[in-house]
Design a protein around this nucleic acid. Structure first.
Lengths: 343, 343
DNA sequence: GTGAAAGCGCTAACAG
DNA sequence: CTGTTAGCGCTTTCAC
């Protein structure tokens, strides 16, 4: 039905092999003159090679499978952009799926990707991957896996791009505890089982321990990385515990929800309650109050991950297996000025 | 290298055809007993059929190409979700690409998708598609195209899902002009050439005409559908023209930027300046002030589009070619209460 | 420089 | 119910 290489071959009075050589720009294959003749015909009839057919013989699809938990969390689109931009620049196309932080869905997508024979996988994991399956990926399909943003215990992978969540949270909370403050900071977390959240909690604890501030679990809550969850956690916190002086939100969108909740309760920010977020998503400096946050290089995480994956596919060296990107505190309006802020 | 249907056939002492029948669950094909035997072996060795190979013979890839202008605009992820959710439920996988509102990029992605033999295309167009190419899609590849959110003059397509932008904007601006106000509303637009923006401008004009309010072009600006652009347009507007009483922003993210700019200039919302956005993106009620906006069913747009496309692929009737989804004004904090708001 | 032929992994008649 | 065969559109030896 569609026009095929055979058609082109006939129209050009050459063999399929010759056309194939032209399409693939094989060096030293075809005389300049026949090459041009074929090219012209291809152009005229608008022939586009069937990449499926090619894939089946070359056994590479120039396709990457990318799984993220939630495309509606603004963090991920930015990361996806990074992946895509590099992938496209290297002539790859990407399948994108949302796992909804659901392990079954995630596994389903991995299966689908494997069946569609993606050349590689980039995952921001949601919970565990069934160990058996993870094994299968390697043994049978030999598909390289790059982990993004979230690590997963027990899963072997080929490369990873992360940030130092413990240190990031430690720095953020320490900033909140500057000027010899001794009152515990409240913690508004994402899902307890997600490692980024668990690590940020660790950093939070570290900062308190350093100052010998005991941690009352009443000021620690877990939810999801969503605005709504941030809203609810903050509301609950204030209702149950009363006002708090400082909040560390494990992500900016949680912070946004929390800010909204506090406003509804007529608690002024940063005067009565200070708050620090995490991620530095795009809008965090465009809403009011602009969020003080621990920035991570979101786009770069994706970009570098794609780069590592494609290096892997090309059999090149990727350097260190895990790359830890830097975080940076960005002070804005949700925190008061601190001694030593200007120097 | 990978395990193939031939391997399974040998291991099961049957022919490839029989294995194929089992894989595809052909009715009345195989005896229960051999079927189970084969299934067990498939299970044991972890065989996954090569969908590329299947595609080449069935000439369907169970893949959909989706192009959006900008995944970082929160409007689109929600729409993408709609597309994906339905597509996945019907066993399709989707390629997603950002055109960056760039026609060349868009065309490049369409070409790639065509070469990868997607079964159908869903586009939120960015500017024109080269007429010749658009033709090619139909004549040569017979790939159905569903348009989303944005129409494009001169491009033939199989189905479309839109909203009534003219009416939506008309309603929004009319709301702003209620209570016999006669001062022109300012217009903060997206790209002038994008039809959603152009139509919203039309509705804006209509609302003014109805009240015989002349339109001073100084109060009309165009930019992009980004927060930054909203910020700049609002800043420029106030700088050049002085304070304005009411603003109609062609999208919520433009509104967010504008709100930020006004705040910086110490203009209070809604007291001194009222503002209405468009879209009702997720965070529009979570920031402060919460945005009064003309809501559109973003998720549904995507979902319905996917549904239409897959109906098309199945040769089913899609009903009306163009589906126009309803919009609805949601009054929140960026506008004052109006006479007749409560009834 | 070019062609013939084989084969990638699968499905789809057609026999039996 | 099952096997044989052909062939999808392409690349890739291997000859010439």
């Amino acid at each position: 039905m569609n026009i095929t290489i055979t058609d082109i071959a006939k129209m050009s009075n050459v063999s399929k092999a010759t056309v194939s050589r032209v399409i693939n720009n094989k060096i030293g294959g075809v005389s300049q003159e026949t090459k041009e003749r074929i090219l012209k015909i291809i152009q005229d009839v608008g022939y586009k090679p069937n990449l499926m057919a090619r894939s089946i013989v070359t056994s590479e699809t120039k396709t990457i499978g990318l799984i993220i938990p939630d495309i509606q969390n603004p963090f991920f689109p930015q990361m996806v952009r990074g992946v895509q931009d590099y992938a496209v620049s290297q002539n790859y196309t990407v399948f994108l799926c949302n796992s909804d932080s659901n392990v079954e869905k995630q596994q389903h997508y991995i299966d689908t990707f494997l069946q569609k024979r993606v050349d590689g996988l980039i995952l921001t994991t949601s919970g565990d991957i069934y160990p058996g399956h993870a094994q299968n990926m390697y043994k049978q399909y030999n598909v390289p896996v790059v982990l993004l943003d979230r690590k997963i215990a027990g899963l072997s992978y080929n490369a990873g791009v992360f940030i130092d969540n413990i240190d990031g949270a430690y720095q953020a909370v320490s900033y909140l505890l500057k000027d010899n403050l001794t009152e515990q900071v409240a913690f508004l977390g994402g899902p307890k089982e997600v490692d980024t959240c668990a690590e940020r909690f660790q950093g939070y604890v570290q900062a308190h321990e350093e100052k010998n501030i005991p941690i009352d679990p009443e000021l620690v809550s877990y939810g999801e990385y969503t605005v709504e969850s941030g809203y609810e956690m903050a509301e609950d916190l204030i209702n149950k515990h009363g006002p708090v002086g400082r909040i560390f939100a494990a992500s900016d969108i949680i912070a946004i929800g929390a800010i909204r909740a506090l406003r509804k309760m007529h608690i002024s920010i940063p005067k009565e309650t200070e708050i620090i977020g995490f991620d530095n998503i795009g809008i965090s400096d465009m809403i009011y109050p602009a969020i003080t946050t621990m920035a991570q290089p979101i786009y770069d995480i994706g970009y570098i991950a794609a780069k590592k994956l494609i290096k892997l596919l090309n059999g090149e060296e990727i350097g260190q297996k895990n790359e830890i990107l830097p975080t940076k505190l960005i002070v804005r309006e949700t925190t008061k000025e601190r001694y030593g802020d200007r120097e």
